[in-house]
Simulated assay, not measured.
Amino acid sequence: MSEILNSSELVEKKKDIIPGIAKKFVIPEEKAKKFLKLAIEECARSKYRLNINEDTISGPSDKIKEIIKEIEEWTADEFDKEDFEIIGYCKNI
């Protein structure tokens, strides 16, 4: 069974780590929020092979549940400089 998830909802769930990301990469919180959204979408695409379209992530229910569980455990320390450069610079953050 397929399920649809809004990537902005996941960002909202993890908004507590946005200040840490901003401080770590010396960027404004608005850009840290954008980075977090892009990181979530990249994880969904590459690790879970889910479909990304605009603001939605879709795919099998079990994979959607897995990615939600993983992202709920993320901290600002989840990302290093290389992650930021690959995800952030490619998307012009």
Rank of each mutant, 00 (worst) to 15 (best):
A76M: 04
K81P: 02
K23C: 01
N53H: 07
A39D: 01
D83M: 11
Y89L: 10
C43F: 11
E12H: 07
M1D: 13
D16K: 15
K81L: 14
E66M: 03
G88D: 11
F84T: 05
Y89M: 14
S8N: 15
I71Q: 01
I18P: 00
N51Q: 09
I67T: 06
T56V: 11
P19N: 08
S58Q: 07
G88T: 10
F84Y: 13
I52E: 04
T75D: 12
S8A: 11
L5D: 00
N6R: 08
E85N: 13
A32R: 05
L5C: 00
I40W: 06
E29N: 08
T56Y: 12
W74I: 02
E70P: 09
L38P: 03
K47W: 05
K47Y: 09
G59V: 09
E54S: 13
E82F: 15
P19E: 07
E54G: 08
P19G: 04
T56L: 10
S61C: 10
K33Y: 04
K15S: 14
C90E: 15
P28S: 01
L36E: 15
K24W: 02
I93D: 07
E78M: 07
E54W: 07
S2D: 15
I52A: 01
I40M: 04
L50R: 05
T75M: 03
K13H: 05
I27K: 00
I18H: 00
I18F: 01
A39E: 02
L38N: 12
D55A: 07
F35E: 11
L36C: 08
E12I: 09
K47H: 10
S7V: 11
E72F: 14
A39M: 00
E70D: 10
F79Q: 04
I71L: 05
K37M: 03
N51A: 06
K37V: 01
E72Y: 10
L10G: 02
F79K: 07
E78K: 14
D83Q: 05
S2W: 07
L36W: 12
P60L: 14
I40Q: 06
E29Y: 09
I86R: 11
K63T: 03
I71G: 06
S8E: 15
T75C: 10
K91S: 10
F25G: 01
S61L: 11
E3Q: 13
L38H: 10
F25S: 00
D77R: 14
N53Q: 12
N53I: 12
E30A: 14
D16W: 10
D16V: 13
